[in-house]
């Protein structure tokens, strides 16, 4: 538990503080848009319906149903001589899956998945709600997956499928929905390769919260009060008994 907590903290810190990454992000910023051509009439806007049913851009495939980012069906991780096998994982997301976890509001149907080293995972993400949900996985090798992520977003009641190839390392990958308060309210999971290297904190049904909520404490009841009374008497009796024993032995040792 403590180890997992530390691991998560380290991951968070790496993500927040990594200056090199920030620099990379700065450099990746798009160039400035062109100024308006001088002396030319203002361009006229026209309706262009249905022009963009399907977009592809920098590893992102997007349409009205959602987006798949950094799909990889062929490129092998450096540590994998070949694809060890194919797995299909189906993840359902929505409010109804949080009913099994009191105090949560959004969740996946399962919050832990397993896959073997170097397997090719075909992930189908089904959104059961008419609001956005995401399955965003972190920690993949950066040379194959920009920003170390594989990400599926579905904008409403629909589904999307994407494929990625896992490295060989025994590892637990962090999966979540990055819509404000979705992870916090239950939409978090972990994908374990070769059994994983521990658990992450705050996985509904698997690991508790580092900063859990405090709930109202109910009445004790007479049984608990009685038990507490007995425990108190026992403690007092033990102290008295040991004290007497100690006093006797010190007296008997005295010359």
């Amino acid at each position: 538990m403590r180890r997992a907590r530390l691991a998560c903290l380290c991951a968070c810190l790496t993500v927040v503080l990594c200056p090199a990454c920030q620099q990379a992000a700065e450099e990746a910023k798009p160039a400035a848009a062109a100024p308006p051509p001088a002396g030319q009439p203002t361009p006229k806007l026209r309706l262009t319906e249905g022009q963009h049913a399907h977009h592809e851009h920098e590893g992102m495939v997007m349409d009205l149903d959602g987006a798949v980012m950094n799909e990889n069906t062929e490129k092998l991780p450096q540590d994998c001589p070949e694809i060890a096998g194919d797995v299909e994982i189906t993840v359902k997301a929505g409010k109804k899956h949080a009913r099994q976890y009191p105090g949560k509001m959004f969740s996946y149907d399962r919050n832990e998945w397993e896959a073997g080293p170097c397997t090719r995972v075909k992930l189908t993400f089904i959104n059961d709600d008419p609001v956005r949900h995401q399955w965003m996985m972190h920690g993949l090798p950066k040379y194959l997956y920009p920003e170390a992520m594989f990400h599926i977003e579905v904008t409403g009641p629909a589904q999307k499928t994407g494929t990625f190839i896992l490295p060989s390392t025994k590892r637990t990958y962090f999966v979540h929905c990055d819509i404000a308060q979705h992870m916090e309210k239950g939409m978090k999971g972990q994908l374990k390769v070769a059994g994983g290297d521990g658990d992450l904190p705050s996985i509904p049904g698997i690991v508790g919260d580092p900063y859990p909520d405090r709930y109202e404490v109910g009445d004790w009841g007479w049984q608990a009060a009685l038990a507490a009374g007995f425990a108190g008497l026992l403690g007092a009796g033990l102290t008295f008994w040991f004290g007497r024993k100690a006093g006797q032995s010190s007296r008997s040792e005295a010359p």
Partner: peptide
């Protein structure tokens, strides 16, 4: 202004909006 259904993909990406955020037709 043009609608997330009518703008170019680059513009849509840089806007941060979903494709169905503002549909104008």
């Amino acid at each position: 202004t043009k609608g997330t259904n009518n703008v170019s993909h680059t513009t849509l990406m840089e806007s941060g909006l979903a494709m169905d955020a503002v549909v104008l037709e």
